[in-house]
């Protein structure tokens, strides 16, 4: 019981501290801005730990963070294999193929206006569909290996990426294009020097959406059949054995991979589209 009260006290104390830190103009310093979410995060973890211990929650329902960390550290070899199988082979190769295909399709769509008017509504429609459902069919076609996961990922990322790329390529004014024409620039020169740079913010937006979709696709596809390796397989099998600490460790792998990829894309965006208003501070 004391642990539960301690958790409550800790929560209120952290809440008060964050409230104090953000009042009276103190939130303008970048240190405070970094500190406040960190305090919130550690408090959530600490309260979780204290509540699980204080209320004696069985580990088959909710394991404590310390226990998850132990499992994670103890089985890094196993989880590394899962990471390679699902993230590197399944998600990233599928992401690369899907994005490349979408970019090529976007240029085709952009060259032929008829195709644009036809394909764009279809693309918008497809982007809203639950494409994850295609996973069992892909597993049937391409087998249990990483190829079927990559195929699901390709299909999932293609349409959001296409829609964003086409919208980006449209994002130049008639004046800018006319200027290129007065310079005597060819279609490809205009594309390379004016329209692709102008489309970059859209491309990065699409890439961010696509990268999260890729993780989801690769993991969910493993629920339909996989070799005895992979983040999705680990989650499903550990879940069946009620080893929830292992499930959480596998989810941690997915979370770390997802936020790392997202972080890399954000950094690349900042480096490449530094001129865009949304990046200037």
């Amino acid at each position: 019981m004391t642990l539960v009260i301690l958790a409550l006290v800790l929560w209120l104390a952290a809440w008060g501290l964050n409230g104090w830190l953000t009042r009276g103009g103190r939130d303008r310093s970048s240190l405070v801005r970094a500190l406040v979410p960190l305090i919130f995060g550690t408090t959530v973890l600490a309260v979780w730990e204290l509540l699980v211990r204080g209320l004696a929650v069985p580990p088959a329902i909710l394991p404590a963070p310390s226990r998850i960390a132990q499992t994670f550290v103890a089985s890094t070899g196993l989880l590394w294999g899962d990471f390679v199988q699902t993230i590197l082979k399944g998600a990233l190769s599928g992401l690369a193929i899907g994005v490349a295909a979408a970019l090529i399709a976007a240029i085709l769509v952009d060259r032929f206006d008829f195709l644009r008017r036809g394909l764009l509504p279809v693309g918008h429609f497809m982007a809203a569909l639950p494409i994850v459902g295609i996973a069992p069919i892909m597993v049937m076609w391409f087998g249990f290996g990483w190829q079927s996961k990559a195929a699901v990922v390709v299909l999932m990322v293609f349409f959001p990426m296409l829609v964003n790329a086409v919208a980006g390529l449209q994002d130049t004014t008639a004046q800018q294009r006319d200027l290129m024409r007065t310079y005597g620039a060819s279609y490809w020169q205009t594309l390379r020097m004016l329209r692709v740079p102008a489309a970059l913010p859209f491309l990065f937006n699409g890439l961010k959406i696509a990268s999260t979709l890729a993780m989801i696709g690769a993991i969910v596809a493993e629920f339909f059949g996989s070799p005895t390796q992979g983040v999705g397989f680990r989650i499903a099998s550990a879940n069946g054995a009620l080893r929830l600490d292992m499930v959480w460790s596998a989810i941690l792998v997915g979370a770390l991979a997802g936020s790392t990829v997202y972080g890399i894309i954000t950094l690349a965006e900042r480096a490449v589209t530094f001129w865009h208003p949304s990046q200037r501070t």
Binding site: F40, G41, V132, M215, I219, A250, S259, Y262
Partner: peptide
């Protein structure tokens, strides 16, 4: 300041898992 960064990070996690 405390919730928003975590909300953005959680978007990158394959929650469906």
């Amino acid at each position: 300041l405390s919730v928003m960064p975590w909300a953005i990070i959680s978007q990158t996690i394959p929650i469906v898992a």
